[in-house]
Design a protein around this nucleic acid. Structure first.
Lengths: 192, 192
DNA sequence: CACGCAATCTAATCACTGTCAAGATTGTTA
DNA sequence: TAACAATCTTGACAGTGATTAGATTGCGTG
């Protein structure tokens, strides 16, 4: 009764592309990617089921866009971890940041690493980690490391971090009461 | 011409359940789980599209069965790695076995770890690894390890192995010319 | 200002999917 | 042999990604 706001829906949405991505992020965070459908997202934005295809070639391209956003958030988290850490503990802090990011958004992990294979050379979080690790290792060892050694140490450490992120998502494996402390202790088992 | 084998299709397939699972395994190994459909599998077995539902409650239950088979294969691979290894190098050999298994069947990795969260307590490969690791660590350190230390070392090592398996699937990260050697060297970076 | 183009949207439709219900066929067991 | 349970077919439904043709609109150019 007394509908004051007819709220006549304009023909053009005006911000559809961004809204779709944002809703996609939220949906995946809540329910995972499996049950996500373009039609549901379109309806949620009050738009016809074909409208999204004006902005994305297909569902896959849309998910690519969502993936890019998550990747950005992850990279941001790593940058923040880098900035708040001392020089001596960068690598451990980056590890904590990585694990925590996925612990807080478990479904992102599945989504991010389930889609088409990530290219190491263009995946920003790994690029950033490589750079930081290279610098840190050289300082720690006073530049006495070969390139090959740096490569090996970097890979091993990051593999551990990635594996720990997985374990953090499983019930009863890690002590999540103080995840930061737990990760810190676990990463110390690796000689750098 | 001169069709000698009319090959009258019997009303009952006789081995449908097993054949579906087998074809499912092959399909996932080739194309991944995304494009797998119950109807295609049914057709491949020369059976109507609703027939599989006499054996599986729904697609999810079917994929559970496929997942169980892959898990079994992985567990077998670990057992074999265990048997062919010396006491001193069990942990490294298990790691090699784990990584190699997924390197040879890359799409299994995605499938296995993409579905509903694995329960650490009922996932045979991890159970087996825990037992082996516990025994190995105690021997190495002459029983001077606390339970908590064993837990930490086991988790870290296995996390590294799992992460390395991921890297093995990415182009240009690991040296896959001699993957066994590479994994062996990388795992040595971890103090056990 | 008006014209027209390009971006964006709708409506209608297609092939495909998971899944169910009703009924047909068969193996097995009492 | 009769009856039951397991297995399969047919036919249907709603939901999906995607395409097409055409409607609406914003915006820059003359």
């Amino acid at each position: 009764m007394c509908a004051k706001k007819p709220e006549v829906k304009p023909y053009h949405h005006g911000n559809l592309k961004e809204e779709l991505i944002e809703n996609g992020l939220k949906y995946i965070d809540k329910y995972g990617v499996e049950s996500l459908s373009m039609r549901k997202l379109a309806e949620a934005s009050g738009v016809s089921s074909a409208a999204p295809y004006a902005h994305f070639k297909n569902k896959d391209a849309f998910l690519d866009a969502v993936q890019d956003h998550i990747t950005e958030n992850l990279t941001d988290a790593l940058h923040k971890a880098f900035e708040r850490s001392t020089e001596r503990e960068v690598l451990i802090e980056l590890g904590k940041g990585y694990v925590t990011f996925f612990y807080e958004n478990p479904l992102y992990y599945q989504f991010l690493f389930t889609r088409r294979n990530i290219d190491i050379n263009t995946f920003p979080p790994y690029q950033f980690y490589s750079e930081v690790a290279s610098v840190a290792l050289k300082k720690m060892h006073e530049k006495k490391l070969t390139k090959e050694t740096i490569r090996k140490k970097t890979i091993t450490m990051w593999a551990t971090v990635h594996g720990l992120a997985r374990f953090a998502l499983m019930d009863g494996v890690l002590n999540t009461d103080d995840l930061d402390k737990e990760i810190g202790q676990l990463l110390c088992s690796i000689e750098v």
